[in-house]
Amino acid sequence: MSPSTSVKLAKKLVEQLWKHLAEPQSTYQLPEEAVFSNSIAFFGPQPIGELSGISTLFDEVYRPLANTFPVVHRKEYLFLGGEFEGGTWVVSAGEFVGEMQAPYLGIPASKQPVKMRFGEFYKIENERIVEIRCLFDILGLAAQAGYPLLPAFEGRSEVAPGPALDNGLCYNDKEPNESRKTLELVEDMLGGCNRLKGSKLASMGMADFWHEDMVWHGPWGVGSCYGFREFQEFAQGPSVASFPGRTGGYHQARIADGLTSAFTGWPSLKGHFTGKPFRGFQPTHGAIGMNIMDFYVRRDDKLHENWVLIDLIEFGQQCGVDLLDKLPSSTSTALENA
Rank of each mutant, 00 (worst) to 15 (best):
M290P: 10
N291A: 12
I292Q: 11
I292C: 07
I292T: 14
M293K: 02
M293I: 12
D294H: 15
D294E: 15
D294L: 15
F295W: 10
F295I: 11
Y296H: 10
Y296G: 07
Y296Q: 04
V297M: 03
V297Q: 05
R298Y: 07
R298S: 04
R298I: 03
R298F: 05
R299V: 03
R299T: 05
R299W: 01
D300S: 09
D300F: 09
D300C: 02
D300K: 10
D301N: 10
D301K: 12
K302F: 00
L303V: 06
H304F: 09
H304P: 05
E305N: 03
N306F: 14
N306Q: 15
N306M: 14
W307E: 05
V308I: 15
V308A: 12
V308Y: 12
L309P: 09
L309D: 02
L309Q: 11
L309W: 10
L309T: 08
I310D: 08
I310R: 11
I310Q: 08
I310W: 06
D311T: 09
D311P: 04
L312Q: 11
L312G: 00
E314Q: 11
E314L: 14
E314V: 04
E314C: 07
E314H: 13
F315G: 12
F315Q: 11
F315C: 08
F315I: 06
F315N: 08
G316E: 01
G316A: 00
G316Q: 02
Q317R: 11
Q317L: 10
Q317F: 06
Q317E: 07
Q317D: 00
Q317G: 01
Q318W: 08
Q318C: 03
Q318A: 07
C319W: 08
C319T: 13
C319A: 14
G320L: 04
G320T: 09
V321N: 05
V321T: 09
D322V: 04
L323S: 01
L323M: 02
L324E: 01
L324R: 06
L324N: 01
D325L: 09
D325H: 07
D325N: 14
L327P: 12
L327S: 08
P328I: 10
S329V: 02
S329E: 06
S330A: 15
T331G: 01
T331Y: 04
S332A: 14
T333H: 02
A334W: 15
A334T: 15
A334S: 15
L335V: 12
L335P: 11
